[in-house]
Design a protein around this nucleic acid. Structure first.
Length: 570
RNA sequence: CGGGGUGUAGCGCAGUCUGGUAGCGCACCUGCUUUGGGAGCAGGGGGUCGUAGGUUCGAAUCCUAUCGCCCCGACCA
């Protein structure tokens, strides 16, 4: 491709609304262009990177035995009603009506359509398992789209769905997909980890997330530097509590006057105690009623864990307007003694601890010496708090670390969550009808490309990993002399003939402009042809990552560049 | 959802407080000079000032409504 004939519009200035590096650089490099909030055009350069990413994913999926198909982005509401996600998915699901006023959704994922497809086509265990995938545009109407391709509303995702006659078969495919995912990210030279994850909106039993480690990541990843334990912070556990806390003698229940101390820090200061010596009470409004959760004063409640424990569909902090009616006490002073809350949970770290200091369910009042079983009913114990850095690993007690990560892939064991309600069944060896056991596997194409940039850039621009660079090599023609032009042209033709993805910068621009553009776009390799070195029969070449110029005769440089490109293709 | 901000040329911004018919930089076009890390000079094109009402002799500017976009918050009991 010749730059002068191509469509590249680089920007010198940073668009005002870009807030992460990858978004700024992709916009400046002319790879993407924002059309609306969270909705982007992939410009030619950006599209090339995306297509390369897709090709890698396709290869690894095919290698893992998955079969490609393509499902519609607009899907009938009936299917979503069958799975009950029409009611449960919430506002992220974009609903549209056609001219006949029939309901449709713009699909955020395709469990319903694939399940519908497979239940029609497969009725026998003899035809299982199957693993089907597509690379398709999705839409999720995010509350607050941001970070460019990292959290867009419209995005391209690879989604695969597997169907099985047995758990073992699902385990087998799940493992193959995990291996395939690692291979994909490895090929893109991404520093990533696979961690235990919550299943969220999709549902199911086991689940792993693939996280690319980056400062700008929206997720927190807990990992053990010793034993490879890794989990999303939503799911991570630790052994931070003292499991065999000895039972102190039970004290008298004693109300304390604590005016103006609504926050746990205030209470701690007022009573000259550490917050870890107090018990914090969180109150949630859920579809299971008002739920009170007690945690140690210095810890944070974990809504995901609480929601999962309750089996709740809906959970949020109790709004102040309904607080008193629901708990029987004012905001800031609530506690388990004499509460109206339907259920009281307590973090496992409180089990066996005596003489709690809690809210008194009365203005300006706390209570010391509260003991479960005596002063209020024994609460339901469980793991309801979020792991902190330094907590001991649940497996080996090593202090845990927390990093930021970008979720680029997510695999789930769905079980029969969709096959059962949608009646996707097969006949087993004994002729008995059974629901198929399912797995599903997502991988964000655009998000992975953005993550690669987050991980690999400098002040001047992107530094592409070769496999997803829009072009592998740029040939910069420096100057307009006939021999410069002719040599650049010749190198360009020979690289093309060798199958290298090469862009010839034949524009009538000053050298500085060409260098800056090449750095910004981030071609991994650059060949420079200019009158100065050409006078000595030499051309120059350099890697984007270090920009150290090397000189050599054309044949020699060509051989080295082709070698580097081949090496990176794996 | 709550709070804040913003909308003026393709991009980044000033002008709004104190109304008088729109400006700067980048980009773009023409010419000359220049040519190894985003050139210089000269000339030029491009904007119903988000939209709709209102006030006024006169509105980018004041008032009202509305839409878009951006940021921050959502563990505080």
């Amino acid at each position: 491709m010749r730059w002068s004939q191509y469509f590249i519009n680089t920007l010198r200035e940073v668009p005002a609304d870009a807030d992460v590096i990858s978004q700024k650089l992709m916009m400046r490099a002319g790879m993407i262009r924002k059309v609306a909030a969270g909705i982007y055009t992939s410009l030619p350069l950006g599209l090339r990177s995306m297509q390369k990413m897709e090709a890698i994913v396709r290869e690894e999926m095919n290698r893992a035995g998955a079969i490609e198909l393509s499902m519609p982005t607009i899907q009938p509401a009936e299917l979503w009603m069958e799975s009950h996600r029409w009611e449960r998915y919430g506002k992220e699901l974009l609903r549209v009506k056609d001219r006949h006023e029939r309901d449709f959704v713009y699909a955020p994922t395709a469990e319903e359509v694939i399940t519908d497809t497979v239940r029609d086509a497969i009725n026998s265990y003899r035809l299982l398992p199957v693993n089907l995938y597509q690379i398709q545009t999705k839409f999720r109407d995010e509350v607050r789209p941001r970070f460019g391709l990292m959290r867009g509303r419209e995005f391209v995702m690879k989604d695969a769905y597997s169907f099985h006659a047995s758990r073992e078969s699902l385990d087998d495919t799940y493992e193959k997909m995990r291996v395939a995912y690692s291979a994909v990210f490895h090929r893109c030279a991404l520093d990533h980890v696979a961690v235990d994850a919550d299943t969220g909106n999709i549902g199911g039993s086991a689940s792993h997330e693939f996280m690319v480690l980056a400062q700008s990541g929206e997720d927190a990843v807990v990992s053990c530097p010793n034993c490879k334990y890794g989990a999303n912070i939503e799911k991570a556990t630790s052994k931070f509590f003292d499991a065999d806390a000895t039972l102190a003698p039970l004290a008298e229940l004693a109300p304390i006057h604590t005016p103006g101390t609504q926050s746990i820090d205030d209470v701690g200061k007022f009573l000259s105690k550490l917050t870890s010596e107090l018990v914090k009470t969180l109150v949630f409004d859920t579809d299971k009623g008002c739920v009170m959760v007690l945690v140690r004063g210095d810890r944070e409640g974990n809504e995901i864990k609480i929601k999962n424990h309750l089996g709740a569909e809906f959970l949020e902090m109790m709004p102040d307007t309904r607080f008193e009616a629901a708990t029987g006490g004012p905001v800031g002073y609530c506690g388990p003694v004499g509460t109206n809350a339907a259920r009281v949970l307590a973090d496992i770290s409180l089990r066996g601890v005596a003489n709690w200091v809690v809210g008194g369910n009365k203005k300006d009042t706390h209570i010391a010496g509260a003991n479960p079983g005596r002063d209020f009913p024994e609460p339901e114990y469980g793991d309801f708090t979020t792991v902190f850095a330094g907590d001991p690993c649940p497996r080996c007690d090593t202090p845990l670390q927390i990093h930021r990560g970008i979720e680029v892939g997510h695999v789930f064991k769905l079980g029969t969550k969709y096959s059962e309600p949608m009646n996707c069944t097969f006949l087993d060896e004994k002729g008995a009808r059974q629901p198929m056991i399912m797995g599903c596997y997502g991988l964000g194409i655009g998000r992975t490309v953005a993550a690669a940039i987050e991980q690999s850039h400098d002040d001047d621009g992107i530094i592409w990993p070769m496999p997803i660079a829009p072009f592998e090599v740029v040939v910069t023609q420096i100057g307009k002399e006939d021999n410069v032009r002719a040599t650049a042209e010749e190198l360009y033709q020979r690289l093309r003939a060798a199958g290298v993805d090469v862009l010839l910068d034949d524009r009538d621009e000053r050298p500085g402009v060409k260098f800056k553009d090449a750095d910004l776009i981030g071609f991994p390799l650059r060949i420079g042809v200019g009158a100065k070195s050409l006078a000595n029969g030499q051309i120059e070449w350099s890697f984007r990552k270090d920009r150290v110029k090397q000189l050599g005769a054309a044949d020699e440089v060509l051989a080295r560049v082709i070698e580097e490109v081949t090496k990176a293709r794996v």
